[in-house]
Amino acid sequence: MAVAIVRAVEAVSSVVLGKEEQIRLAVACMIARGHLLIEDLPGMGKTTLAHALAKVFSLDYRRVQFTSDMLPADILGVSVFDPERREFHLRQGPVFTQLLLADEINRATPKTQGALLEAMEERQVTLDGETRTLPEPFFVIATQNPITQAGTFPLPESQLDRFLMRISLGYPSAETERELLAGSDRRDQALSMKPVLGVAELMQSMAQVEKVHASPDLIDYIQRLMAHSRNSGLFTAGLSPRAGLGLLRAARAWALLAGNDYVTPEDVQVVLGPVTAHRLQGSAGGGPESSTRQLLESVPVVRRH
């Protein structure tokens, strides 16, 4: 099973060049049943990545470009009156899909953001008192410009918490850049990609993630990471229990991608940055990356006493 997933990673890599690590993280995030936030400047290939992921897993997907004039109903759907049948029926919004690309989510108003994030968490939507569950699986891949950009509404921390991971792509290397310039349009390539994995297989790997063995020693390590984030004073606020669960889930997914049926501390260390960086604020200033590195360096992997 893991082999098929690895093939998916390879397929995406052939479109999004030179970003293997980020792609693996994104796939890990998906099979860990997590939502993904891609944060970067415009034009770095965020959307391409999202498209490629949707294609490769042959997911039913929709794309929504968020704007500041968007209303919650534009995402969730709306009840409309059908004059012929003389009754209301729900016109489902774009959220009723397996993979939702929420482009530039921080351009929308907090209200709209809130509506989406609630749907992400509950995996269901309530309209006019009627609750409808979202399809299974359901992923949101949101992209976001760095908050310094004009005309944006930064996501509040409580909502950032709903994304399992945040990754950023960064500038391509010189070599990749050359390759990009020489090749055809990447987004078109992404849109014409062949699926590598069926939905069933994706679901199956999601089930497998849960069976990846996390030994008590490893759980202990994660617990000490959590405790240190709360007690060390490195951060203004420590990691939430939800973050801890997410970290374990992401580490499991990462281990599965590596072809293992057990989690090692390396798996935790790899996913710690993407899982926690957007939830932590370093108390001594400095970027979130350096804070998480500090966290990793100060917590012993194996208990000393």
């Binding site: 090692t264 501390p265 390396e266 360096e297 100060s298 917590v299 992997v301 194996v302």
Partner: peptide
């Protein structure tokens, strides 16, 4: 860990076995 420290292998608290 003590052995490696004594031999001057650069390690931090958080070095994993793989590290």
């Amino acid at each position: 860990l003590r052995l490696l420290n004594n031999r001057g292998v650069p390690l931090t608290q958080g070095t994993s076995p793989q590290g």
